[in-house]
Nucleic acid binder design. Structure first.
Lengths: 215, 215
DNA sequence: GTCAATTTGTGAAAAATATCACGACTTATT
DNA sequence: AATAAGTCGTGATATTTTTCACAAATTGAC
């Protein structure tokens, strides 16, 4: 676990940087400054420099950063070379969106199997990912450590418990339920309804002419 | 407007509190303590009390909070009574998920129309929401001020520009593109691929036995 | 080679957020 | 009525994150 001194706020921005550096490279750019990158990813340039500095001196004064070098560095740091298997639980509209989305491109994660309670869906495939019945979760899950939860909120607790007891260590939870897990399991909540409400709240209650970007 | 002293971090939690208070009321509970609420929403109880305190003294020492009262208060604060119209741009899997999701229940937002570039989709309806062709955006958008962007990243800039020039003030952006907007337009990015990558990164690089919950 | 223009890396300061911890008050019990 | 248990509201503190601002290094032009 090498550098656990990296602030979480920084860690969350790393994949974003990585993706934009990839874009730059594909555009044939060889160098980039924190200022340019700042405009592209909408993060303050001082913040970008600070973020990078946690990994050492990656740039060159008066020059900026070498795209190729930086990209190579982040590839290692973000473990882009090893693919992490992911299970998708719940093949509704949202789940289907994930299956069709080609995560593996520019990404170190891959959805390798999916589950759904609808028997009509089991046995089929979407985006090359096989779908199994939720009853077969324990049997089929194998050694997958990360799950995306796109099921009805009412099922969240029960399914989470099964996932956890099968050894899942990370859950990306799209249900409105706030699930309970042991201390060694990490949950990220993405609550679409709340995001929308928060946006509306900010629109109505916060001054509309600052440059701040929230979230 | 009114209280712009409320910290943004607090503002983002308000819709969450609101939803759980609703749940409590439906369960017939009349009172709740910050401790109970803390367990339900997974936010530290001191943080909850602090959050509530920005609105004044809403609770009672030794008793907790009256669910009905608190709910009424937040209903006003979060403008739950006035419905905000929202436009959905891009009726793919993700967009369809939004259309089928009944936002209006427990919510102050409503998707009133959708757009897509696929002519086969225009004229149809999903979840009671009419779908128009993207070419008719300017004509049909009307006075809607908030948009959900679920289109391919390549289209993001062009569509954003059109939305902005038609008067949109808030955008919930699900594309990987970081869009540029004038200072008076608010954008929240929700980047699904990055969320997944960040989760994987945390799993690999951060101690796995703390109680912290990130997002 | 010199000089102006860039741009990093970072100490220091500021801002934002979260948490501790306790006095004050309420409720419930006996 | 007194006491114990529970709980808020908040001053103070701690932690995290962002931003400023500038010395040092590099580049590129002439």
């Amino acid at each position: 676990m090498e550098q656990n001194k990296i602030p979480q706020a920084t860690a969350k921005r790393l994949p974003l940087y990585y993706r934009f550096l990839n874009n730059l490279q594909m555009q044939g750019k060889t160098r980039v400054s924190s200022k340019e990158l700042s405009e592209a990813v909408k993060v303050d340039s001082a913040t970008i420099r600070r973020d990078f500095s946690y990994f050492g001196a990656l740039g060159k004064k008066g020059y900026g950063y070498n795209v190729e070098y930086l990209l190579g560095f982040f590839r290692k740091t973000l473990d882009q070379d090893e693919l992490t298997d992911v299970a998708l639980i719940g093949v509704g509209n949202l789940g289907t969106a994930f299956l069709n989305y080609n995560f593996t491109k520019n990404n170190n994660t891959k959805i390798v199997l999916a589950f759904d309670a609808d028997p009509n869906k089991s046995g089929k495939e979407i985006g090359g990912v096989p779908i199994f019945h939720i009853d077969d979760l324990e049997e089929k899950l194998g050694n997958v450590k990360v799950a995306i939860l796109t099921i009805p909120a009412t099922e969240a607790d029960r399914v989470t418990e099964r996932l956890v007891s099968k050894g899942i260590k990370g859950i990306l939870n799209f249900t409105p339920a706030r699930i309970s897990v042991p201390d060694d399991v990490r949950v990220h909540h993405i609550d679409l309804a709340i995001e929308l409400q928060a946006l509306v709240y900010f629109l109505k209650h916060y001054p509309l002419d600052t440059k701040e970007e929230v979230l």
